[in-house]
Design a protein around this nucleic acid. Structure first.
Length: 478
RNA sequence: GGCGGCAUAGCCAAGUGGUAAGGCGACGGUCUGCAAAACCGUUAUUCACCGGUUCAAAUCCGGUUGCCGCCUCCA
């Protein structure tokens, strides 16, 4: 299936054609490490995790680069507030980030460069821009990019220079020649971390690090550059100006921007204070539930985050795992395959969905279809052939590899997720089991009144019973 | 103010020209002592509104309304 990808500046999908045959270079803007990551970050990280997994599965020779911005105003501010060094702040939150990614099952990028490890590359790039007359040194030793000198500024975000001038502003103390100019190199004040450069002791501006590091690892033209929608302007616009200004070749062949996580329709962000950190959420929500929520929406659409939305995802995930659990429990039969055709259809459907601009929502619909078909088949005949078991294992492997869900043992997953925190019910597991036992004795004695009474009591405490051939099971209803 | 995006059933959500995926919920059925789960069936003649193009429009064009984002740090 031919891969079609939506490209931000063209506003439409087109066939994905890497610059060099099968090789794909993908750069995604990572995080600024000054605080814990929230669910909005999680979505972006998951989206590109899934895209990278799919590209690899598709056979592309992918090099995925995701940076850490480890020097910046906010990191310095945080370090000052904590009376520590910028380095300690950055390193601490890089550790926290890595822990979050491990929790979320987001794989490491191939290369995860830090801005401060590439000061030399950054200075070299700024030097080229100054040499070409696209940048200038201001009085204080800072270096600014001269926006007016770069033709094509605004083409990514669809803005014209004249339109931007009105809205532009200049901070006090900035020595720009033009309000639209942006800093490539910031001269440092006393006490701030700094590096030597031909212009001043200082530190890199935000935008230049991505240009410098992406070029270092992937060359001057990227096949894919990704990030959140909010980075389109000015960050990605500025990266384009820097890179194309310096090297004279197209910077990015495919811009991919993910939609926001919103809360009550508003963007989740630090400044609005309506955020929830990854760590907080995953204390009582299984990471795959969040992943399924992300997968159930198209990557460019907003996701309105709520407990309700989370619950819906949880229920779907439980449905998938219960199907897998049934499969595991099914007795063997030597009969011919009943599921092979369904599984073939499913695998083709998810590839088709993903090849169409990474349409994970459609892929999840196919997974629901497959689940229904497997359940139906097992309703008709609870036995399963070896061939079907193998095919199904293959399908699950594909799901795990591309989407990062259904990676857990079904029995274990259902235990932890369905039973959750027993404490909340006000009963101990022992008490629950005792009541179930008492109810089953009543049932045996055909005392259904007493049996139903017990079931209702448990239900009132949020515990749902399920009588199955193997005995009575219980779960906590969210 | 400028630029951009979105508007699909009770809710969530796919769908960019060929006659509305999927999930949740609800209702009916099979199964069950009764439930739960699973399965089967029903649940949008219609895609914010008004015009237009077309044999054909949720999809394209123009306008209106509402919501959101960017223009300052932001995934």
């Amino acid at each position: 299936m031919e891969l079609n990808v939506y490209n931000t500046p063209f506003k439409k999908k087109k066939p994905f054609v890497p610059l060099n045959g099968n090789k794909v270079g993908m750069y995604v803007c990572g995080v600024t490490v000054y605080d814990m990551c929230h669910i909005g970050h999680a979505r972006s990280l998951m989206v590109f995790d899934i895209i990278s997994r799919y590209l690899r599965r598709k056979g592309y020779d992918l090099t995925y680069v995701r940076n850490f911005t480890d020097i910046d105003d906010k990191i310095i501010a945080r370090a000052n507030a904590l009376e520590t060094s910028y380095r300690e702040v950055a390193d601490r939150y890089i550790d926290e980030f890595n822990t979050d990614m491990e929790i979320l099952g987001v794989r490491h990028a191939d290369i995860e460069p830090k801005a401060t490890d590439h000061i030399g590359d950054i200075i070299e790039m700024v030097r080229i821009l100054v040499e070409k007359g696209l940048a200038y040194r201001a009085e204080d030793g800072s270096v600014y990019f001269s926006v007016a000198k770069f033709k094509g500024y605004g083409s990514l975000s669809g803005r014209r220079i004249e339109e931007m001038i009105a809205g532009a502003r200049v901070d006090i103390g900035e020595l720009k020649r033009d309000p639209l100019d942006f800093a490539l190199w910031k001269a440092s004040k006393v006490g701030e971390p700094s590096w030597d450069s031909p212009w001043s002791k200082g530190r890199p501006g935000w935008h230049i690090e991505c240009s410098a590091m992406s070029t270092r690892f992937l060359g001057p033209t990227l096949d894919i550059h990704g990030g959140g929608r909010d980075l389109i302007f000015p960050h990605h616009e500025n990266e384009t100006a820097q890179s194309e200004g310096a090297y004279g070749v197209p910077f990015v062949r495919n811009w991919i921007h993910n939609g926001f996580v919103t809360v009550n329709g508003e963007k989740m962000s630090k400044s609005l204070g309506n955020f929830m950190t990854i760590r907080e959420l995953t204390r009582d929500v299984h990471p795959e539930v969040l992943r399924l929520l992300v997968l159930s929406n198209h990557y460019r659409s907003p996701i309105d985050f709520s407990r309700d939305a989370l619950n819906t995802s949880r229920n779907s995930l439980v449905r998938f795992y219960e199907m897998l659990d049934r499969v595991n429990r099914a007795t063997a039969t030597g009969d011919a395959s009943r599921l092979e055709a369904h599984i073939g259809t499913f695998l083709a459907a998810i590839d088709e969905a993903m090849a169409d601009d990474f349409n994970t929502a459609r892929a999840m619909a196919s997974l629901h279809d497959l689940t229904t078909k497997v359940n139906r088949s097992l309703d008709n005949d609870p036995r399963l052939s070896e061939g079907d078991r193998r095919q199904l294992a293959r399908a699950v492997e594909e799901i795990v590899e591309v989407f990062g869900i259904l990676a857990e043992d079904p029995g274990l997953f259902l235990d932890t997720v369905k039973r959750g925190d027993v404490q909340e019910t006000g009963l101990s597991e022992q008490e629950i089991l005792r009541l179930i036992d008492e109810r089953n004795q009543a049932r045996k004695a055909k005392d259904f009144k007493r049996a139903d009474e017990i079931r209702d009591t448990l239900k009132a405490k949020g515990i749902q019973l399920k009588d199955s051939p193997g005995g009575t099971l219980w779960e906590k209803k969210p």
